[in-house]
Each structure stands twice: as C-alpha cells, then as structure tokens.
C-alpha cells in the first residue's frame, strides 16, 4: 500500500487505545524489580526483595515455589505431550483413513471443538472424586488433555489435509503399509504442526487456572496460577511488587515462547481456531 499522508490519525487513535496496555506492561516489569513508592509512579531504587519468594517461604503453610513450578511444568508438559500424541494419530485417522462412521466422527469433532467444556466442570469434579483422582496432578493432567483434545485433533487434521494425497498414493504404490506410509512419509510433512500443537498446548496448560483451582485445590498439587492467585487472595495489603515479581517469574516461559514464535503463533491462532 502506498503511504498515506493522514496515517498519523490512525497511529494516534491506536496509541490512545494501546496506552493502558503499554502502561500495564511497563509497570509490570518496573514494579517487580523496584521498591514500591506509594502514591508515586516514579520507581524507587532497584529492589530485589520482591523476588524473595524464590529463596524463602513468603508465609507459613505455602508450598515452596520450586515445587509449585515443578508441578506446573509437569502439568503443562505432560498435557502437551498427551494432547499432541493423541491428536497426531486421531487427526490422521480422521483426515485420511477410510473407516465406518467417519463423517459422524468428523461432525462430532466439530461440535466438540465448539462446545464450551468449562460447563462440564461440576460433573468432572464428581467423576474425579469417584475415580479417586481428585486433588492429584494425574487427574488434572487427564482432564486438561481430554478437554484440549478436540482442538488438537482439529489442528492436526488441518495439517494432514494439506499433505498431498499423491504422496500417500505413491507410498502405497511403493509397497509400504498404511502405517508405514504415515510414519515414514506423512508424519515428516506435518512436523511444523506437531511443534505448533506442542507449543500451544504447553502454553495453554501453563496458563490454566480454573481446572487446578477446582480439581486440585490441595497445596501439594498447587501450580503457579493457583499459587499466585492464593498469594493475591491471602494478602490483605495488596503488595503489588511481590505479586508482579511472581507474575514475572510465572510468565517467563510464555514471554520466551512469545518472543521466539510470535509470528507462527499468530498464524495458527489466525486459522480460525480456538485458543
């Protein structure tokens, strides 16, 4: 597009709307490392005491941050791994394999993809109690993975759909079984999809809040989101410096992934998908 002389109008309007966000981002970083100065917005001296949660318990009865971080990592990575694994096979079956009832599976997938899973949380809460998985990491991992699955299958099916049929036909013609064709010829073509799904479901697991809050409320299964929420809820003095430092710590993987994969992430989310 040619440059337009009145483009600064747009820039001005956009800037006005963006200001609150930018202020939030900037002070999120500043306040986490500067001593708070009540009633003023000019940061005080550099003060790392906000980060004390890393080396001491901020109050009694709260689990150590490292255990919480470990829980979060296990939760997010296992979920991402499970979702990717099951989506990789199920997506291929739905995209390519001739089997009875395929249209119904596809229709069901679309419905599930749109269906707001959070409405089921009460029933899931009770199911986990029946199964004895309530307040366990395994329980929320299974639930989170299952709830992310329709999205994952949908994404992977989309990636498989772009692999030319002729590649598979050629493989079959070359004498390879359907399984071998999938493993050796098709799977390498959808590697970008696997990576994208791994990243997205890891991010989703890392950010998840409601599921651990409801299904794993105990302190031994706390994850960073519920830990941070509990610190905010329990602290009457609203120590934003501490909150923001925890927030910074919590969002490190998100920020790193965002900086590295921003463009790819936008593309994936832009494909008309849930996220």
């Amino acid at each position: 597009m040619t440059a337009h002389p009145r483009i600064w109008h747009l820039v001005l309007i956009l800037s006005i709307f963006s200001t609150p966000l930018v202020i939030m981002y900037v002070y999120q970083v500043i306040d986490s490392i500067a001593s708070p100065d009540p009633g003023s917005l000019i940061p005080g001296e550099i003060d790392l005491s906000n980060w004390r949660f890393l080396w001491e318990r901020i109050d009694m009865g709260r689990p150590s941050i490292w255990m919480v971080t470990f829980n979060t990592f296990i939760f997010a990575s296992t979920t991402a791994f499970l979702v990717t694994l099951l989506s990789t096979t199920a997506g291929y079956a739905l995209s390519r394999l001739d089997m009875p009832g395929r249209p119904y599976f596809l229709g069901g997938l679309i419905i599930l993809h749109a269906f707001p899973t959070i409405t089921l949380i009460i029933a899931i809460f009770i199911i986990l109690q029946f199964l004895g998985l309530f307040d366990t990491l395994l329980g929320i991992i299974l639930v989170k993975a299952a709830l992310e699955l329709p999205f994952g299958v949908w994404i992977m099916k989309g990636f498989y759909d772009t692999v030319p049929w002729e590649i598979e036909m050629a493989g079959v013609q070359d004498g390879a079984s359907r399984f071998r064709v999938w493993w050796e010829l098709v799977l390498p073509q959808v590697k970008p999809g696997l990576a994208a799904l791994l990243i997205i479901s890891f991010l989703s697991g890392w950010s998840e809040f409601v599921l651990p809050l409801v299904l794993a409320p105990g302190s031994s299964t706390q994850v960073l989101s519920t830990y941070m929420n509990a610190v905010i809820q329990d602290d009457a003095s609203a120590d934003f410096g501490l909150f923001k430092a925890i927030g910074m710590f919590y969002s490190i993987p998100v920020i790193v992934i965002y900086l590295v994969f921003q463009k790819q992430l936008m593309n994936i989310y832009g494909g008309g998908t849930k996220g």
């Binding site: 030319p164 036909m169 050629a170 493989g171 013609q173 070359d174 004498g175 390879a176 071998r180």
Partner: peptide, 27 residues
C-alpha cells in the same frame, strides 16, 4: 505397479536417492 503422478509426489524430506530407493527399502 509403478506410478508417476502429475505432481510427481516425491517425498519432500528425502533426497533423490532416498526417494528412488524407497520401494526397495520397503522390501
């Protein structure tokens, strides 16, 4: 049966040698 497809359907992640040799590798 050997087939040559309109878009050739070469396996993008394999070299020409691996492509040509694939049917024998399967055997």
């Amino acid at each position: 049966v050997g087939v040559v497809f309109q878009n050739y359907a070469l396996y993008p992640h394999m070299t020409a040698e691996q492509n040509i040799g694939f049917p024998l590798k399967v055997q």
